[in-house]
């Protein structure tokens, strides 16, 4: 993913993408175990916990819903928190639409698989290499890998009602951040991208103490609107 200077064969590119998709799936799965355990210890049944991972399938929203209910919040408050955190997936879907070009049933599946990791992996590939096949494989391989592993992990955690150990002990919290960072890195190509990236980081830091967890990421999106609007007279 990082060394893209030399022309690679499709076989090689395909193998690298699939391997990367599996490794990010494994790192994310450790949090699936935590989610499963949190679900059943918060009073949800095993079936309800697993249903969230299958039907909602967006980690931030799932944790928000279950934590709100565990803290004594109403169902409405839980729904509001989950929905608000899910809005960034709408922005991802807008960006991925022209790349994936899915229709019918595959569009429905693609929608469900639109999450941080699959979007980051798709956009980390050059959109023009192999007529966009690399981007599409990045999306589908990562989406499916995370879906399968996240759901297996949720079931495991829900049944055991205890985490196998704190994922932090193994540094897995840092692994997920580093993985996403490695995927955004190749997307930052122009001076505007650098400014948007730095601005987003600063807004996220500045708003963390004042906003509920999850919202600083949404607040940071304002920088994309500002700079996108400023470039309105330039061709895309």
């Amino acid at each position: 993913m990082t060394a893209q200077s030399a022309p690679e064969s499709w076989e090689h590119t395909r193998r690298v993408i699939v391997r990367n998709a599996l490794s990010i799936g494994l790192a994310v799965a450790t949090y699936g175990v935590s989610f499963g355990a949190l679900g059943t210890t918060s009073g949800l049944t095993v079936a309800q916990t697993c249903a969230l991972s299958i039907l909602m399938f967006t980690g931030g929203s799932q944790f928000a819903l279950v934590s709100t209910i565990a803290a004594g919040g109403t169902g409405m408050a839980g729904i509001a928190a989950a929905t608000l955190l899910g809005t960034r997936n709408a922005a991802y879907a807008m960006r991925l639409g022209p790349i994936l070009n899915s229709t019918g049933f595959s569009k429905i599946v693609a929608s469900q698989l639109t999450i941080d990791e699959s979007t980051a992996m798709a956009l980390a590939q050059d959109e023009t290499t192999f007529e966009g096949r690399a981007s599409r494989l990045g999306f589908w391989a990562t989406g499916l890998s995370v879906f399968v592993l996240w759901n297996l992990a949720t079931l495991l955690g829900a049944l055991a009602a205890t985490t196998i150990g704190d994922p932090k002990t193994f540094g897995l919290d840092a692994a997920i951040a580093a993985g996403l960072f490695a995927l955004v890195w190749p997307q930052i190509k122009t001076k505007t991208h650098v400014i948007v990236a730095c601005g987003a980081a600063l807004i996220a830091l500045a708003t963390t103490p004042i906003l509920s967890p999850g919202l600083p990421v949404l607040a940071a999106s304002i920088i994309a609107f500002v700079f996108g609007y400023a470039q309105r007279n330039e061709p895309t």
């Binding site: 960034r88 922005a91 991802y92 807008m94 960006r95 941080d116 979007t119 980051a120 956009l123 919290d173 840092a174 997920i176 951040a177 996403l180 960072f181 995927l183 955004v184 997307q187 930052i188 505007t192 991208h193 948007v196 990236a197 601005g199 987003a200 980081a201 807004i203 996220a204 830091l205 963390t208 967890p213 600083p216 990421v217 949404l218 607040a219 940071a220 999106s221 920088i223 994309a224 609107f225 700079f227 996108g228 609007y229 470039q231 309105r232 007279n233 330039e234 061709p235 895309t236």
Partner: peptide, 26 residues
């Protein structure tokens, strides 16, 4: 539309960088 195109291209960068920042410092 250029304005929409620019915004949708910048949004994932802003969101993912903010996510990494929060995952690292919050």
């Amino acid at each position: 539309k250029p304005v929409v195109g620019h915004i949708t291209k910048l949004l994932p960068i802003a969101l993912l960088v903010a996510l990494v920042t929060v995952q690292t410092f919050a």
